[in-house]
């Protein structure tokens, strides 16, 4: 993880705390729809492309309604792409059977499935990012806990997130100190590395100890209680219901195809 990633996580955090119709939806409804969305997208056969296109409506709609800058989501996708891209690029090498032709261009099965992989990547990643940017970590964690995630783990997520910023500040301070006193690259010898990371570790553990003291001072007994969350309203039910029906329809019928056929029928 590089320093730039920290500004990124801060940016996501800011987005998550905005106010929009999407942010106001119950996190559980969004989590549910997003999970169904991802499973549906991945359940398509490997050569499918056109039927996947209508699925774009979901992340794009969410991102637009949440007023999240599209550029931001795209940038994050590009950064995350290499692994899927690399493995996907192998497909055209191994699967050379011609599959379909677009004008004079003949596409092999490998290329079709590669494009399909890219499409899936865009869909699943943008849906996940939209969920987080349109909900915020706190609401997401509290929502997951109410969906049945073990409380110990939900609190672990929230604690980790809370102290990311504090501990990374400490790490950045340590690194600044090192850079001021050394020339050349940021990479260190193993011995220096061990003592720096060890220092950071000990400081972190001391901090955990002080946090524990502060928790105990306010009556902590091993159980963490959260404030009562809002009850889901009809808005959430409508959102979840409509999204699920539309996603289901897009899974059962190839909507792009239907549109194409309908148009073709109309033209001739």
């Amino acid at each position: 993880m590089r320093l730039a990633d920290w500004t990124e996580i801060g940016r996501m955090d800011e987005l998550g705390r905005m106010d929009s119709p999407v942010h106001r939806l119950d996190p559980r409804a969004k989590v549910l729809v997003s999970l169904v969305f991802i499973v549906l997208v991945m359940s398509f056969p490997r050569y499918e492309i056109s039927a996947l296109v209508p699925f774009l409506f979901y992340p794009v709609g969410l991102i637009a309604l949440a007023r999240i800058p599209m550029r931001h989501i795209m940038k994050k996708m590009l950064i995350a792409a290499p692994f899927a891209l690399l493995i996907g690029l192998v497909n055209p090498l191994f699967d050379r059977q011609p599959m379909c032709s677009v004008g004079p261009l003949e596409l092999s099965g490998g290329w079709v499935s590669f494009i399909s992989i890219l499409f899936r990547f865009v869909l699943t990643v943008s849906a996940a990012l939209a969920l987080v940017a349109g909900t915020g970590m706190y609401r997401l964690g509290a929502g997951l806990e109410r969906l049945g995630l073990p409380r110990v783990f939900a609190m672990q997520l929230l604690f980790l997130y809370r102290y990311l910023f504090v501990i990374s500040d400490e790490a950045a301070r340590i690194m600044r100190g090192v850079r001021l006193r050394s020339v050349g690259s940021g990479a260190l010898g193993l011995r220096v590395y061990g003592s720096l990371v060890g220092q950071l570790l000990l400081r972190s553990m001391d901090r955990a100890d002080r946090i524990y003291q502060a928790m105990v001072a306010r009556g902590f007994d091993g159980e963490i209680r959260l404030l009562q969350q809002s009850v889901p309203g009809w808005c959430d039910a409508v959102f979840a219901g409509c999204s699920l029906i539309l996603l289901g329809a897009a899974r059962v019928w190839n909507l792009s195809d239907l549109l194409g056929i309908w148009l073709a029928g109309g033209v001739s």
Partner: peptide, 18 residues
């Protein structure tokens, strides 16, 4: 060290909830 909860409101509520 003292503000360990994810929001200000949750943090202030921590003691009373306990």
């Amino acid at each position: 060290d003292q503000l360990f909860m994810p929001t200000v409101a949750e943090d202030v509520a921590f003691g009373p909830l306990n």
